[in-house]
């Protein structure tokens, strides 16, 4: 029987590869490979051999030119050894093949800065939104309530009733659009999948610390119109078991953490559509 295969790209400052691969396996992928970018650029590992691409958290190139900027530039210009192909072509082919991409934190920043999100009109390489310095001016590690947009086309969030609770850990997570039109279109097409909210997942939150960075319309994560590409600032891979919850010693919690459903949905989608 064909295997469902997830890949997690690491290298140049990516940090969350281990727990992202773990979340993929727990979520139902037969295989989750951690691939160093050097192994992709050398041609040893090809994106084409996978169904689900994880761009995870970290500090690509130390955030030196602004988060993920240097990696976006690298992916656009670097060539895969022995093929003459630019690495970015493997990405666009991956998208065209109907496969799934999840960007978390630094991975979300990378997707946005490459132009993969929101990916209007099939254009995955021109930037229209950004993630920039938190209004508080500092890196923050704190847990956030994320209200889901249940009308979203996103395949990762299917079945989430109200919202999920996840940690955010970033200094550059303030979501901003280039124009009002971009923001309106994101809202109109229900691409703003997750919003920072109050603990009841009732109302979007604009105030610190519930909204930890000052994002426009409290947006914490978006997807493309196909729903197969998604990025979010908080970390779903960091809450796949109850012991990761900050209050597990005092609350009755299910065995599984809130973040796991994203990986389950991805595995489910791959089994149904890509195998």
């Amino acid at each position: 029987m064909a295997q469902t295969r997830a890949i997690v790209i690491t290298g140049n400052g990516t940090n969350c590869e281990m727990e992202a691969a773990h979340a993929c396996r727990l979520g139902g992928f037969d295989e989750a490979v951690i691939a160093h970018i050097a192994e992709i650029l050398s041609g040893e590992i090809r994106l084409d051999d996978f169904h689900f691409l994880n761009l995870t958290g970290g500090f690509l190139d130390g955030d030196d030119l602004g988060s993920a900027k240097a990696q976006a530039n690298r992916l656009k210009h670097a060539t895969v050894a022995g093929t003459g192909e630019k690495l970015v072509e493997q990405f666009t082919r991956f998208i065209a093949d109907g496969k799934l991409i999840l960007g978390v934190c630094n991975g979300f920043q990378l997707m946005v800065k490459m132009g993969m999100l929101p990916g209007f009109d099939g254009n995955y390489l021109s930037q229209t939104v950004t993630l920039t310095h938190n209004d508080c001016g500092r890196f923050q590690d704190r847990w956030t309530y994320l209200k889901v947009d249940s009308a979203s086309p996103c395949i990762f969030t299917r079945g989430i009733e109200k919202g999920i609770y996840l940690p955010m850990r970033h200094g550059e997570g303030k979501f901003m659009c280039d124009t009002d039109e971009t923001l309106q279109r994101i809202e109109r097409e229900h691409l703003g999948v997750f919003r920072y909210s109050d603990p009841d997942y009732a109302a979007a939150a604009m105030e610190f610390p519930a909204n930890p960075n000052g994002s426009q319309n409290a947006i914490a994560g978006i997807c493309d119109p196909s729903g197969r590409l998604m990025g979010l600032m908080p970390h779903p891979e960091a809450f796949v078991h109850y012991t990761q919850h900050p209050r597990w010693t005092r609350e009755q919690l299910p065995e599984e953490g809130d973040g796991l459903i994203l990986y389950r949905n991805a595995a489910e989608y791959v089994k149904k559509n890509l195998i």
Binding site: C16, R169, E237, V240
Partner: peptide
């Protein structure tokens, strides 16, 4: 809070 105390997922 300025220190990431949860990366690597084992917290």
């Amino acid at each position: 809070r300025r220190y990431d105390h949860e990366v690597q997922g084992g917290s």
